[in-house]
Nucleic acid binder design. Sequence first.
DNA 1: GCCAACGTTGGC
DNA 2: GCCAACGTTGGC
Length: 139
Amino acid sequence: MRYWLFKSEPSTWGWQDQLAKGDAGEEWDGVRNYQARNFMREMAVGDRGFFYHSQSEKAVVGTVEVIATAHPDSKSDDPRWECVDIKAVASAKTPVTLDTIKSDPRLADMVLVKNSRLSVQPVTADEWRIICDMAGLSG
DNA sequence: GCCAACGTTGGC
DNA sequence: GCCAACGTTGGC
């Protein structure tokens, strides 16, 4: 199983929106970046990910699971763009802020720190465990 | 609200 | 195929 991070502006699509979809989940649509799309193509059903709020909140707020592999983005007429479907798994008991992540040397190599603009990114197993611990989640 | 970083586009 | 111009993102 691999681990990922999905970034969204809470004003556009937030954790509450994702939670409201329940086990049915939702397309992670709207990605218009090749790197991010390519990561989604690598995802398998059952992979886990963090749900990260950018902009005002800047924190990991929950975990999600991939429930469908990459398919054409239904919100785009351009066949280049694809997306996976994800469902909410657990809410962070304590959101893990970007400040917290940046202040932990074990997380200094996270893509989130090094390439803050990439909206879909891989997370290592070590990073996954560390942040789950911080969030009060078993992972 | 600003600006740096980065990705994409399009002219050559 | 290069590179300048432009648009977008996201942290501050």
